[in-house]
C-alpha cells in the first residue's frame, strides 16, 4: 500500500509542474487569441457557430483603424514623446550615474534611493501632484503636448536608472576614463568614444523599455487631456469595438517586437569586451 501511494506521489510530482505550466499557458494566451478573433473575424459573437466560424475573416477592422482621422497624428505624437523621454532620460541619468561612480561614491545610496522614489508616487498620484503644483503655479507648462515627457522620465526612472547603473558597473569605468584621459582625450571624447560604446547594451535596453512605457501610458495622458496614441485607442474602442481591438492587438505586437529587439540587442552587445576605441 505504501509503495502504491508513494508511486502516485512520484507520478504527481512529475506531471504536477507540467499541469501548472499548461494551465498558466491557457490563462495567458486565451485573451490574446480571443482578441485576434475579435479583430479579424467580422462575425458578432452571438452569431458564432459551426457555419459562421470559417467565414468573413479579414483585416478590415484593422484597416478601418488606420483610416481614422486621429490615428497618424496621435501615433506621431506618442513616438515623438517616446523619443523626447528617452533623450531626457539619457541626458539626465547617464552623467549623473557616471558622476556618482567616478567622483561622488558617497552619494550612491542617496541617488539609488531617490531613483526608487517614483514607486511611492504612482501615476495617478502624480496626476494629483500636477493638479496641486503645476496648475496653480505653472499652467503654461501644461499647455504643451510635450509636458508629458518629464513625468514619463520620472515614471520610468526606477527601471532606467537601474539599467544604466548596471551597465556602468559591468565596465571598469575608472580605468577607461583614466586611460582615455591620459591619452589626451577630453571629457566629451572620453564619453563619446570610451564610455558610451561600452554601455551601449544597457542604454539600448533602457531606451526600449522607456519607449514601451510611453507608448502604452494612459493615466497621465488622459488626465492632462493630451491626444496620445493610448488615449486615442481608448476613445476609438468605445466607438468601434472591432477596430479598437485590432488596434490593441497591433500595439501588443509592436510592444513585443520592441522588447524582442531589446533582448537581441543586449545579448549580442554584451559579448564584446570593454575597450577604448581608437582616437
Amino acid at each position: 500500500m505504501a509503495a502504491i501511494s508513494s508511486r502516485i506521489k512520484a507520478y504527481l510530482g512529475r506531471i504536477g509542474p507540467s499541469l501548472v505550466l499548461l494551465a498558466a499557458a491557457v490563462f495567458f494566451i486565451a485573451p490574446i487569441l480571443s482578441t485576434a478573433r475579435a479583430a479579424f473575424h467580422k462575425v458578432p459573437t452571438i452569431l458564432l457557430d459551426r457555419h459562421t466560424w470559417f467565414k468573413k475573416w479579414s483585416l478590415e477592422g484593422v484597416r478601418r483603424a488606420f483610416d481614422e482621422e486621429f490615428f497618424w497624428p496621435t501615433l506621431a505624437l506618442s513616438l515623438k514623446l517616446a523619443l523626447v523621454t528617452v533623450l531626457i532620460t539619457m541626458a539626465l541619468l547617464v552623467p549623473t550615474a557616471l558622476f556618482v561612480h567616478l567622483r561622488l561614491p558617497k552619494a550612491r545610496a542617496l541617488v539609488e534611493f531617490l531613483t526608487v522614489l517614483p514607486y511611492v508616487v504612482p501615476p495617478i498620484a502624480l496626476v494629483a501632484g500636477v493638479a496641486a503644483f503645476f496648475r496653480p503655479n505653472a499652467r503654461w507648462f501644461l499647455n504643451s503636448d510635450f509636458s508629458l515627457a518629464p513625468f514619463y522620465v520620472v515614471m520610468a526612472m526606477p527601471f532606467t536608472y537601474r539599467a544604466i547603473d548596471a551597465g556602468i558597473k559591468a565596465i571598469d569605468v575608472r580605468t577607461l576614463v583614466d586611460a582615455s584621459r591620459s591619452l589626451g582625450g577630453s571629457w566629451a571624447t572620453t564619453l563619446r568614444k570610451a564610455l558610451l560604446p561600452n554601455m551601449a547594451s544597457s542604454l539600448l535596453s533602457s531606451a526600449f523599455l522607456t519607449a514601451t512605457v510611453v507608448l502604452g501610458e494612459f493615466t497621465i495622458a488622459s488626465s492632462l487631456a493630451k491626444n496620445t496614441f493610448a488615449t486615442f485607442s481608448f476613445e476609438y474602442f468605445s466607438r468601434d469595438a472591432q477596430g479598437g481591438v485590432g488596434l490593441a492587438l497591433l500595439t501588443l505586437l509592436a510592444t513585443t517586437a520592441l522588447l524582442g529587439l531589446m533582448t537581441v540587442a543586449t545579448r549580442s552587445k554584451s559579448r564584446k569586451a570593454a575597450t577604448v576605441t581608437r582616437f
Binding site: T96, F99, V100, L104, P150
Partner: peptide, 21 residues
C-alpha cells in the same frame, strides 16, 4: 554640485508635486 541637474529635475517633477498633494 554635479548632482544638481538630477536633484533639480526630481524636485520639480516629483518632490514638489508630491508635497503639493
Amino acid at each position: 554640485l554635479g548632482l544638481l541637474p538630477f536633484l533639480a529635475f526630481l524636485a520639480i517633477f516629483l518632490v514638489l508635486p508630491t508635497l503639493g498633494v
